[in-house]
Design a protein around this nucleic acid. Structure first.
Length: 509
RNA sequence: GCUCGAUUCGUCUAACGGUUAGGACAAGAGAUUCUCAAUCUCUAAAUAGGAGUUCGAUUCUCCUAUCGAGUACCA
C-alpha cells in the first residue's frame, strides 16, 4: 500500500443517464489528484448493466468533461495501453477471473432463480427479517456448495441458468484504510455472498469488473462516492482472493452532495424543483424531457469548476478563486471533508459573477453583439465591447448583457412610471431644458470633462445635481438604473442625447 | 430492522487538546454615487444533547438524538 508506483486514477461512470454535478465533482477530484502528482486520468465506461443503458449518455459524459476542461489521458476516444475502456467490450476477460475464484474456492456457482430468491426475501420480510444469501443461508440453497460435483456439471451442461457468487468468509474482521475516512472495521458476518457474474446478460457485476479492471489498468487510487463505502470490505476481500492485495489501490470515498433544501442527496428532480441546474450540460432524454445545464444557463466552465471544487474540499486558506492550474497545485485528498455538502445555488452565482468581472471586454462584447443582432440591432464589436465595459461588473451571466445595455443602442420605448413621478416635476423639466442648452453648446459629450463642466454650471446656478441628473437619466434611458449617466451620454453621442431629451420632454405625460 | 458513516453560524467551511471559535455566501446597517448595481466598512449568527478522560476539550472515549449511505443477477 505504500508503494511508489505511478499515480493512475480512473473515473468510471455508467452510462445510465446524464452525469450530474456530483459525478462531475468525482471526476474533477480524480483529475486534480492525478495531475497534482503528474499521473494519469483514465475514463472507463462501466456499462455492465445492459438493462439500464441510456443512448447518448456516454457521449454526454465525454462532452461534459471536455466543457469542464478535464482532460482524459486514456479512454475510449483517446485509446491507451489497456484498451478497450468500455467494459461491455471486455466481457471475455471477466468470466475467466470469475472462474478463477471458483477454482480457488473463493466463489461458487448458484442456480437459484430470481423468483426463488424474491420469495425468500418476501418471506423474511414478513417475519421482520432480511434475507441474505450468505454463510448462514447458503447451505440450504441451490449451489455448487450444496450440490454434488456431478450435479453441478450436469446442470451447467444442460444449460441451467447460473450465477457466480463470492463466498464470504465467516466471522472475520476486515480492516480497511480510507484516505479520507481513516480506519474502518467490518465483520464479514454482516455481509452477504454478492453475485459476481450475472446470468441474465453474461456480464460481471460492478464488484468483479471493477476489481479486475482496476488491477489490469494498474490503478493506484480509487476516488469515488460515499455510496461505495458499504462494498469496500467485499472489494478488499476480492483483491485478497485474487492474490492482488499487495498492489491493491488506495481508496478515498468522497462525501455526498445534498439538496439545497430539505433532506437527502441531490437528485435529478431537484433541478426542476428549485430552478437551478444539476447537470453540467443541457440533457435531452430519449423520451423528450429536457433538463437544464450549467453551460446553457450561462455559467463559465471555470466558475462551475471552481464552485464544485470548493464543495467538499478546501485549501486551508481564505482563497476562494482558483483556476484549474491552481486547483491542481493545491488539491489534496487530506483536505476533503467527511460530511455531506449541501449545494448552494447562491454561491454558484457568486462564483460566476466573479469570473464575469475578469472576462475580456472583447470576448463579452462579441456575445453582446450576437444578442443585439438577434434583436435586429447591428453594431460593431468595438461599440459592443465598450458598452460591456460599462456594465459587466453588475452582471452575473452573459445573457444579462443585453438588458443591461439595450438603452445604449436603442432609445427608450417607455419611461419608468416611478421615476417619472419622482424626477419629472415641472421644475425638473424646466431645469433639464436649461441643461440641454449647456450640452448643446458642447462640441461633444466627453464623460469626465462634460460632467465636471455641468457640475460647475449646476453649482453656479444653485440647482440640485441629484434632481437634475435623475431627470436626465430618465429622459435618456427611461429607467433609474445603470452606470454614470455621462458615460452613457458619451457613448450614444451628443446628437442622440439631445434627440432623446427632446423626445422625452415632448412625450412624457 | 441491520451494517457503516457523519454532526461547528441559515449554507460551504477553518481551527488536527489551550483562539475573543476565523473566512466566504446569504441577511441586516452604514459609507460612496446622479440612479441601480458593484465596491468598502460594520452587525447579527455556530461547536446536536449527556456522561467521561484531562490542568484544559470543537478536537479523544462512550451513550443518546438527528441526518445520510448501503442492504439487487444496479452501478
Amino acid at each position: 500500500m505504500t508503494d511508489n508506483r505511478r499515480v493512475r486514477v480512473r473515473f468510471a461512470p455508467s452510462p445510465t443517464g446524464p452525469l450530474h454535478i456530483g459525478g462531475v465533482r468525482t471526476a474533477l477530484y480524480n483529475y486534480l489528484f492525478a495531475k497534482h502528482f503528474g499521473g494519469d486520468f483514465i475514463l472507463r465506461i462501466e456499462d455492465t448493466d445492459s438493462g439500464r443503458y441510456v443512448p447518448g449518455a456516454e457521449e454526454y459524459i465525454f462532452q461534459s468533461l471536455e466543457w469542464c476542461g478535464i482532460k482524459i489521458d486514456e479512454g475510449i476516444n483517446e485509446g491507451g495501453p489497456h484498451a478497450p475502456y468500455r467494459q461491455s467490450e471486455r466481457r471475455d476477460i471477466y468470466l475467466k477471473y470469475a472462474l478463477e475464484l471458483v477454482e480457488n474456492g473463493n466463489a461458487y456457482y448458484a442456480f437459484d432463480t430470481p423468483e426463488e430468491l424474491n420469495a425468500l426475501r418476501a418471506e423474511a420480510e414478513k417475519q421482520g427479517k432480511t434475507f441474505a444469501y450468505g454463510p448462514a443461508t447458503r447451505e440450504g440453497l441451490c449451489n455448487s456448495l450444496t450440490l454434488s460435483e456431478d450435479e453441478v456439471k450436469q446442470r451447467i451442461d444442460r444449460g441451467d441458468v447460473w450465477v457466480i457468487r463470492f463466498k464470504m468468509p465467516e466471522n472475520e474482521n476486515v480492516e480497511m484504510e480510507d484516505i479520507i475516512r481513516g480506519h474502518m472495521v467490518v465483520n464479514t458476518n454482516t455481509l452477504d455472498d454478492k453475485v459476481l457474474y450475472k446470468s441474465v446478460d453474461r456480464l460481471p457485476t460492478y464488484h468483479l469488473a471493477n476489481i479486475v479492471d482496476d488491477h489490469l489498468m494498474e490503478i493506484s487510487h480509487v476516488i469515488r462516492g460515499e455510496e461505495w463505502v458499504p462494498s469496500l470490505p467485499l472489494h478488499f476481500l476480492l483483491y485478497r482472493a485474487f492474490g492482488w492485495s499487495d498492489t491493491q489501490p488506495q481508496f478515498a470515498h468522497l462525501p455526498l452532495l445534498l439538496k439545497p433544501v430539505g433532506q437527502g442527496k441531490l437528485s435529478k428532480r431537484d433541478g426542476d424543483k428549485f430552478g437551478f441546474p444539476v447537470f453540467p450540460l443541457e440533457w435531452h432524454s430519449p423520451d423528450g424531457e429536457v433538463s437544464m445545464g450549467y453551460r446553457e444557463q450561462g455559467y463559465f466552465p471555470e466558475a462551475f469548476i471552481n464552485m464544485l471544487a470548493l464543495l467538499g474540499w478546501n485549501p486551508g486558506t481564505d482563497q476562494e478563486i482558483f483556476n484549474m492550474e491552481q486547483l491542481i497545485d493545491s488539491f489534496s485528498l487530506e483536505r476533503v471533508s467527511k460530511s455531506g455538502a449541501r449545494f448552494s445555488p447562491d454561491k454558484a452565482k457568486w462564483f460566476n459573477a466573479q469570473y464575469m468581472k475578469t472576462r475580456d471586454d472583447a470576448e463579452l462584447g462579441a456575445i453582446l453583439k450576437g444578442l443585439l443582432k438577434e434583436k435586429g440591432i447591428e453594431t460593431t464589436l468595438e461599440r459592443a465591447s465598450k458598452a460591456v465595459s460599462l456594465i459587466k461588473e453588475r452582471a452575473t451571466f452573459p445573457s444579462e448583457l443585453l438588458p443591461l445595455t439595450l438603452y445604449m443602442f436603442q432609445a427608450p420605448a417607455s419611461y419608468d412610471e416611478k421615476s417619472v413621478g419622482k424626477s419629472w416635476k415641472e421644475d425638473d423639466v424646466k431645469n433639464l431644458l436649461l441643461l440641454r442648452e449647456q450640452l448643446a453648446a458642447c462640441s461633444e459629450i466627453i464623460p469626465e470633462e462634460t460632467e465636471q463642466a455641468v457640475h460647475q454650471w449646476i453649482m453656479d446656478n444653485g440647482l440640485s445635481m441629484g434632481r437634475l441628473m435623475n431627470s436626465l437619466r430618465l429622459a435618456v434611458i427611461g429607467i433609474s438604473q445603470g452606470p454614470s449617466i455621462f458615460a452613457i451620454c458619451g457613448f450614444i453621442g451628443k446628437e442622440e442625447t439631445l434627440r432623446r431629451i427632446d423626445y422625452a420632454v415632448a412625450n412624457i405625460k
